[in-house]
């Protein structure tokens, strides 16, 4: 029972801190560009403001348009609850393994795209079409790269995988390098960062995700924005805890957990600094190049799988 409480606590931590993470990312980027940028609490203020505002719905919106933000948020929050953040072994990670995690994110995307198609605007259709196209390439790459880890850990359960990465003597495994690269590429695409999509853009013909949620306002928009921030945090945590899990708590003692939490935050910060540097340094890709980029991720994952079978399976 205690473990359940810890699990919910760590999920709440992830969900609660995700606006902060987004704000930190924005701040870091501003600093690199010699701007002051908004403070770290700005995203919270934005969310509160949006939740309190009167939502404006397009007059032709159907029930799917109204339902979608709730589904997106609930499903994203659930996937946040199954990822090990501070504790390795949590009860909820048995509810959904890593394949289900990918499925849950697909569910959120499915409903976002449907909501975008709901109004019959050109922008909505465009965003939905692009998002689903890219997802169709990103999702298998993501699955393949986590499968490499699953093959190493002989499990698709996220807790077990993290445990294996932390404790088992895996030696030097080239396939893991492939998996990490592929998953990082996918994570950038899935969270809509540069060079795939620009989260700060509106009204550009190259936008993908923003085009889908243009018509949302008020609490609906707040839910979608928040879900996006959770998704960013989720992918960052996934990368950290699957590939560099050192410091994460095996047992639920206060000292361990405090240490794990601080290690997690530090690693997140390092990852965000890297991401900011990359976003500042790179230009956004042409939209026709994105499939190639994702194809590369897919291929790297397949190569990782092949190297796993050729080099690492002991015959």
């Amino acid at each position: 029972m205690k473990l359940w409480a810890y699990n919910i606590l760590q999920a709440a931590l992830l969900i609660g801190l995700s606006p902060l993470a987004a704000a930190v990312l924005r701040k870091l980027k501003a600093l690199l560009q010699n701007r002051r940028g908004p403070g770290p609490l700005q995203t919270y203020r934005d969310l509160v403001k949006l939740f309190n505002k009167e939502p404006v719905l397009p007059d032709r919106a159907s029930w799917i348009f109204r339902l979608a933000p709730y589904v997106v948020f609930a499903v994203t929050a659930l996937s946040a609850a199954i990822v090990p953040v501070i504790l390795v072994h949590t009860p909820l990670s048995a509810v959904a393994d890593v394949i289900t995690l990918v499925g849950l994110l697909a569910m959120a995307r499915f409903f976002t795209a449907l909501a975008a198609m709901d109004l019959g605007t050109a922008f909505g259709g465009m965003g939905a079409s692009r998002e689903m196209t890219f997802a169709a390439l990103a999702e298998p790459a993501m699955l393949m790269s986590v499968f490499i880890l699953s093959l190493a850990a002989q499990s698709t359960n996220l807790s077990t995988v993290t445990d294996t990465m932390l404790n088992a003597d895996l030696g030097l495994r080239p396939s893991l390098a492939f998996a990490l690269t592929a998953m990082a590429l996918v994570a950038i695409a899935e969270t809509g960062r540069i060079p795939v999509d620009n989260p700060a853009t509106h009204l550009e013909l190259t936008m993908v995700h923003e085009a889908m949620v243009l018509e949302y306002s008020g609490r609906y928009l707040a839910l979608i924005e928040w879900a996006n921030q959770i998704k960013l945090m989720l992918f960052a945590t996934l990368l950290i805890n699957l590939f560099v899990p050192w410091g994460i708590a095996m047992e639920a003692t206060a000292v361990n957990m405090a240490f794990a939490a601080s290690a997690w935050l530090l690693k997140l910060l390092a990852l965000f600094v890297a991401l900011t540097l990359m976003e500042t340094w790179m230009a956004k890709m042409r939209i026709f190049r994105v499939p190639e980029y994702l194809g590369l991720a897919f291929l790297l994952a397949i190569l990782g799988m092949l190297t796993h079978f050729i080099l690492e399976v002991v015959i």
Partner: peptide, 15 residues
């Protein structure tokens, strides 16, 4: 129960 929703013509970036 939530805050009332206002129905308005579609925005579509002012199109």
């Amino acid at each position: 129960r939530g805050r009332p929703v206002r129905r308005a013509p579609i925005w579509s970036c002012g199109h």
